[in-house]
Design a protein around this nucleic acid. Structure first.
Length: 444
RNA sequence: GGACCCUUAGCCAAGCGGUAAGGCACGGGACUGCAACUCCCCCACCGCCGGUUCAAAUCCGGCAGGGUCCUCCA
């Protein structure tokens, strides 16, 4: 399996640090609002990565944090006259509902900054003790100059960064490149520490959590391309300072999602919230339709195409499943022997192994759908149909596009028979009633 | 000012030196009580100009258009 490693800037063969085990961490949301579809891209993508590793038999430990200490949360709390904790827990709930709708697994570790304060403070103290950080009037900064290959992950050199500076220089910092580990403040939620009353900087939370949870280097650290600099660069700097490693063996970054070629942002007013999207799994389909490192552009017409794609998948899945269940021929444990079907699975796997090329994996899925549909209109061969269903389940589980079906009851079966009979008898008004019933049941 | 990326048919999108996958839409067939679903066929010389090569969408250079980032926040 090949993964594009942002740290080395090239495609690398994947080998896990521990056999059959994948430890991965993905930067999670700052919980001060509902998430938009751009926020959903990394969530859906890395959920798919996880699913693929699991399908490959790896034991995956998946961690993604909630940033629940942050200026925006404080602002929101002030605006709505709530506590920061009330704000963050509201949006954590909302986040989990949203991603569940996108069929993302939610059984992962979800550390929160508020629950990690002691550890974060200890982590910062270690940096100070090792002389990688310094305290100026209660603010603690990281001394970037002590890290020799700072900029490696995001591919930039320090001189460019300094000369390219457009922001007023903070006179407290030794160097404009230094970043905040702890900020002294009594505004909003704050904590006591040996440095001052205040709160931690954003860049230090993920690395602290990884340190505590995994106790060492992890396999994969993921997040949006926009986090590469400075956030991930700064995380690496801290890990290098304390542990002399780059946190993760593989760094993965997904491309941004834009809206009609524009950045999706609240100031432009073009935000599409996940909770407002009706066809959630069509959204998942859409998000996986382009390779994860490429930019992805959303607009209603393009999305409508994927709604159609999703429905096509749904139709084929249901028809196949119910055709088999109708005659009690479902066999979910069948072994796939058919060459043609094996071939599609192989194409699917090759695509996923190629740096998670979901676009090509979807092509294999579509090809399988064509095979399914054409077999459904031929004389039914149950072994073949069961093999097709098994293959479909395999792909759809990995992509997280699972279609909901419920096993039929004998009553369902008799309604179906009556429908067939009515059609044969040319009793079309009865047939239409029954068809309506079957459609509502999801069988047609 | 600096760093970097993208440009493939009406639309979405693979491709990474060997002669353009797939999907949607369109058009033509088929299936069908009506409808939906579905099936088959058809549909591009890859932004422009030059270069390298036996061979380029794929490599190099220039031009045009679009986008991202640059020690503030995520």
């Amino acid at each position: 399996m090949k993964i594009f490693n942002s740290y080395s800037n090239q495609l690398e063969e994947f080998t896990s640090l521990k056999e059959n085990q994948v430890n991965m961490y993905v930067c999670g949301p700052t919980v001060y609002n509902y998430i938009h579809i751009g926020n959903a891209r990394p969530v859906v993508f890395f959920d798919t990565v996880r699913r693929f590793f699991e399908a490959r038999g790896y034991q995956v430990t998946f961690v993604s944090n909630f940033t629940d200490v942050d200026d925006k949360i404080i602002q929101k709390a002030l605006d709505e006259n709530l506590s920061e904790l009330e704000v963050s827990s509201k949006y954590i709930q909302a986040f989990l509902i949203d991603i569940e709708g996108l069929n993302c697994k939610t059984d992962y570790l979800k550390p929160k900054v508020t629950e990690y304060m002691d550890f974060i403070i200890g982590f910062i103290q270690d940096l100070i003790d090792k002389n990688y950080a310094y305290n100026v009037d209660g603010d603690v900064y990281f001394r970037v100059s002590k890290i020799d290959d700072y900029g490696r992950l995001s591919n930039r050199n320090i001189d460019d960064l300094i000369s390219g500076s457009r922001i007023d220089i903070n006179p407290k910092k030794e160097s404009p490149l230094d970043f905040t580990l702890w900020k002294q403040t009594e505004v909003g939620i704050n904590f006591s520490s040996p440095f001052s009353q205040g709160r931690p900087g954003w860049h230090t939370e993920c690395v602290s959590m990884i340190d505590d949870i995994f106790k060492g280097q992890i396999d994969i650290h993921g997040g949006g391309m926009d986090l590469q600099f400075p956030h991930h660069e700064n995380e690496i700097a801290q890990a290098k300072a304390l542990h002399n490693h780059s946190i993760a063996k593989y760094w993965m970054h997904n491309g941004r999602l834009s809206f009609k070629e524009e950045k999706m942002s609240k100031s432009i007013g073009n935000v599409v919230l996940v909770k407002d999207v009706e066809e959630k799994l069509a959204l998942r389909f859409f998000l996986l339709s382009t390779h994860y490192r490429s930019p992805l552009n959303y607009d209603e017409e393009v999305f409508a195409m994927y709604v159609k794609e999703w429905q096509k998948l749904e139709n084929a899945y249901k028809t196949l499943f119910y055709k088999l269940d109708l005659v009690k021929e479902l066999d979910l444990n069948i072994e796939i022997k058919d060459i043609e079907i094996k071939n599609e699975i192989n194409n699917f796997d090759l695509a996923m192994e190629d740096d998670f090329n979901t676009a090509n994996a979807i092509t294999a899925l579509q090809s399988l759908l064509r095979l399914i549909n054409s077999n459904l209109r031929k004389k039914l061969v149950f072994t073949k149909l069961n093999e097709l269903l098994k293959a479909l389940n395999y792909m759809v589980d990995i992509l997280g596009l699972k279609v909901e079906v419920t096993p039929l009851t004998d009553e369902d079966r008799s309604v179906y028979e009556s429908w067939q009979k009515a059609r044969n008898d040319k009793d079309f008004s009865l047939a239409d009633d029954l068809r309506e019933k079957l459609t509502r049941r999801g069988m047609l």
